[in-house]
Computed example of a mutant assay.
Amino acid sequence: MHIDLSGKTAIVTGSSAGIGFAIAAGLARAGAHVIVNGRSAASTAQAVERIAAAAPQAQVEGHAGDLGTAQGCAELVARYPSCDILVNNLGIYGLQDFFETPDSEWQRFFEVNIMSGVRLSRAYLPAMVGRGWGRVVFISSESALNIPADMIHYGFTKTALLSLARGLAKRVAGSGVTVNSVLPGPTLSDGLATMLADEVSASGKTLDEVAAEFVVAHRPSSIIRRAASVEEVANMVVYTCSPQASATTGAALRVDGGVVDSL
């Protein structure tokens, strides 16, 4: 399958590293003009340079800003008032017991994980509908279905994204615009690599081996029995953003390695 996104502009939030970076790189390789976003100018510029080096023909530029705030979203929209593809990847996570999670932390997760996507979808979807073509993707998680007991506030936000994507797909029904969510499972992102670094150093095993042991221990329902790569998640997102995925909308697409024990 050849995916050609030439002439399309894509914005990928939270894309200076991890899954977001892999998505931005994949869209750039497919020919899209990609806007990379990170919180700092340095990390954003570095991500742009990495994509440009790997795909010299790619059109890629960066926008540094905190999209977890209304002001940050407004600044992005002011600079880039239109796009054809919006990937709402920005998200935060962290272990914290429910009884020790204050209102402020619930609010922070809500603003970053949910409201960033709400604000940007509200800004960009109407023009997509007017043009008769567009793609919006929300990066959810298998934690939306398997709510983690040690970070309920995170699971809550990821479940909310499923509702948001499904509702928006219905809202723009028949317009030529699709809205979907993608649910990664355990993924060997920069964050997971950092979390496992001490174990890698102490055990003498490779990162892949330690990550696989982590998955077996903490996600025993996994069928692939390992962590997915960020590229494997990005492949699903790039396809979902493609013309070939025109009949896929309102869907919750799992790249979870079979962690969710459901038919």
Rank of each mutant, 00 (worst) to 15 (best):
Y93Q: 12
W106A: 03
S141W: 10
A123C: 09
I147H: 01
L162R: 04
P102L: 05
V129N: 09
L161I: 02
L145K: 15
G132A: 13
F99I: 05
N113C: 09
A149K: 09
A127D: 14
E105H: 01
S163Q: 12
M151W: 08
M151G: 02
P102C: 05
F98V: 14
R131H: 11
A165S: 10
H153K: 11
L120N: 09
M151Q: 08
M115Y: 10
R122S: 10
F156N: 03
R135D: 07
T157Q: 13
G117A: 09
V112Y: 09
S140A: 15
T157V: 06
A165W: 00
M128K: 09
E111Q: 15
R135K: 15
S104Q: 15
S140Y: 00
A165C: 04
S140L: 05
G132W: 12
R131V: 06
Y124T: 03
S143K: 07
T157C: 14
Y154H: 06
Q107S: 13
F156E: 02
K158N: 11
F98Y: 15
R135A: 10
V137G: 01
L125G: 01
E142K: 01
M151D: 02
V137Q: 01
A144W: 00
V136G: 01
A123N: 10
T159S: 15
S141N: 07
L161E: 08
I152W: 04
L95W: 09
S143W: 07
T157E: 11
I139R: 03
D150M: 02
N113P: 14
A144Q: 01
S104E: 15
S140Q: 07
L145G: 03
P126W: 02
A149C: 04
L164C: 08
I114K: 00
L125W: 00
D150T: 00
P148W: 07
A165H: 03
A127F: 00
A127T: 01
T101N: 10
I114L: 10
S163F: 08
E105R: 07
V118N: 05
